[in-house]
Design a protein around this nucleic acid. Sequence first.
DNA 1: GAGCTGGAATGAAACCTTTCATGTGACGCA
DNA 2: TGCGTCACATGAAAGGTTTCATTCCAGCTC
Lengths: 341, 341
Amino acid sequence: MAGSASVKDVARRAGVSLGTVSNVLNRPERVGKETKDKVLRAIEELGFVRNEAARQLRAGRSRTIGLLVLDVGNPFFTDIAAGVEEMAASAGLSVLLCNSAERQEREDHYLSVLEEQRALGILISPVSGNNPHLGEIRARGMAAVLVDHRSTRRQCSVSVDDVVGGEIAVAHLIESGYERVAFVGGPTNLNQVADRLSGARKAWQTAGRDDRRLTVLETTALNVAGGRQTGERIAAMPARRRPSAVFCANDLLALGVLQEMTRQGLDVPGDIAIVGYDDIDFAAAAAVPLTSVRQPRAQLGRAATELLIEEISAPETHRHRQVVFEPELVVRASTGGQTSS
Amino acid sequence: MAGSASVKDVARRAGVSLGTVSNVLNRPERVGKETKDKVLRAIEELGFVRNEAARQLRAGRSRTIGLLVLDVGNPFFTDIAAGVEEMAASAGLSVLLCNSAERQEREDHYLSVLEEQRALGILISPVSGNNPHLGEIRARGMAAVLVDHRSTRRQCSVSVDDVVGGEIAVAHLIESGYERVAFVGGPTNLNQVADRLSGARKAWQTAGRDDRRLTVLETTALNVAGGRQTGERIAAMPARRRPSAVFCANDLLALGVLQEMTRQGLDVPGDIAIVGYDDIDFAAAAAVPLTSVRQPRAQLGRAATELLIEEISAPETHRHRQVVFEPELVVRASTGGQTSS
DNA sequence: GAGCTGGAATGAAACCTTTCATGTGACGCA
DNA sequence: TGCGTCACATGAAAGGTTTCATTCCAGCTC
């Protein structure tokens, strides 16, 4: 009723000691059957609910890890979150999902919250390459793994090789015979964007093409709206200078571009081909299914969680590792491929 | 360094008492400037971080509310979450985002976790209409507000009138001259699905049409895959019996149907018109922009949070309310409307 | 110089759980 | 009968923060 019964109340009601109640809760095998039943009945009657704060205080640490992502609205990250949850649950840990919304101040806020909560560790896809606040927290002994962002030796990270990703995307466009290609993405200070562009350049050069002929259309954000704006710019170009294919830094951008192309009466891939990145479910579900660079999202989440758990359980012997997955090109209709899921 | 400096350590280092350190932290105006500086310096040097568990234990409650949604992968819910976060942040509260993934066992698990954490209150879009576990928790004094699910008098809820939503969707199809209409949605035990269908029926009858002529195509889940399967069924129908328009219970279904239609070479809206529900961003971003029933998602989140905060801060005088928003039809190309955002 | 005032600092108590060294009693065996 | 063993049960201590009644002290007034 009161929502405030404590072990003490339970003990009194059951006519046993405090410690016995605790034993029933945590080591039931050490308690006699009769006593156990009495205690369980008392718990039931009083509506006793364990106070996690007191438990944690006593234990000195929580059973929680934090997952701090750039954008919960992006299916890419919710898919990662699914992998994290799965792995964490099997280790008996809870996940605290936090959204920095790509803002440094929010990232810092949540880092503080997680540290005050005595989270066991933190999985973070950082807003910027080098957050001093994160450095401090790690220096105080907090385990942390970077997600979707490659780190230096001094820290664990799990990422996908974005340079290779950019490379296979543009190589595919070149092989398919597209001559005028544009890269769509930004802001360019994001690692993901920079690497994918540099991979694109690499493929371009490998094909012996003039670097200056790879147009870059910069966006302000990696979302659908940014893609639509870019789509307008493309549509406004004179047809003979318009790229015949674009490679977008993520699927949200690609979907925005696709929408705008269709709206302007341009055919995809007839007038312009599109390659996205991430291969979120909406990419395959688009009316013109998107060719995209698939990242193993759930696996990314699982691997990161595994590393984190390793660092947590054996901080002494733990050696930081940088896991890098290989991306995979999925060809669909938006570059003239067969429709497939 | 140790990540384990306590107020006691800080007090010793600064040469003051425990209580003074606490005052610096919580009521700095009551502390002399000189003392305050000493304490702050000690905090800095030791890397002291407040232990939230101890704080909470002492306070008896946390500064956290739980948000338990059906599917974090659905943008509809992440948009609600954005509204909740905004409102909660302005009240100085943190939000714990939990994903039941439409599974009752996970919902129950998170409810227990939230109660043990002594969350201030819970916002929940429930898996089923009547969860006894939630009832128990509420009986013990936990504040709770249902989200996207209308409740009875005994509880607060924030929802959108799904009957009206279904009505305006189908009325629009009738007015636009579509004769053979199908409803796509399921499982039908979900409130949302049942209400939207009943609204659809209402509009159908109002137009004087035979109730039996409104086909119902049931799905097993409200996602893109379910939509695609339904799309296959539709495409397999003989053209003369095929509906000329479908009303889908949510946008994910609608996007799935749309994709399949295009893949099968059917024109939208020429061969078949589509209306979705929720108006998530991907609806407008689809290659054939979707006509959809817009729900005020962020506002839903804000309103629910407001109600919850009210219930938390004045549990005695609080009277449960059922807030119901009106949905709004957004006409786009998928039913022959002008393309718009 | 005694007494008073108010701002500033103090430290013990309380919050609730878990752990662990200790206590109790029953039972079997010599 | 006495002793050892075993299975349970006990209760005090610890963990870090906040609160609040108390104490302290410098400065002021009469």
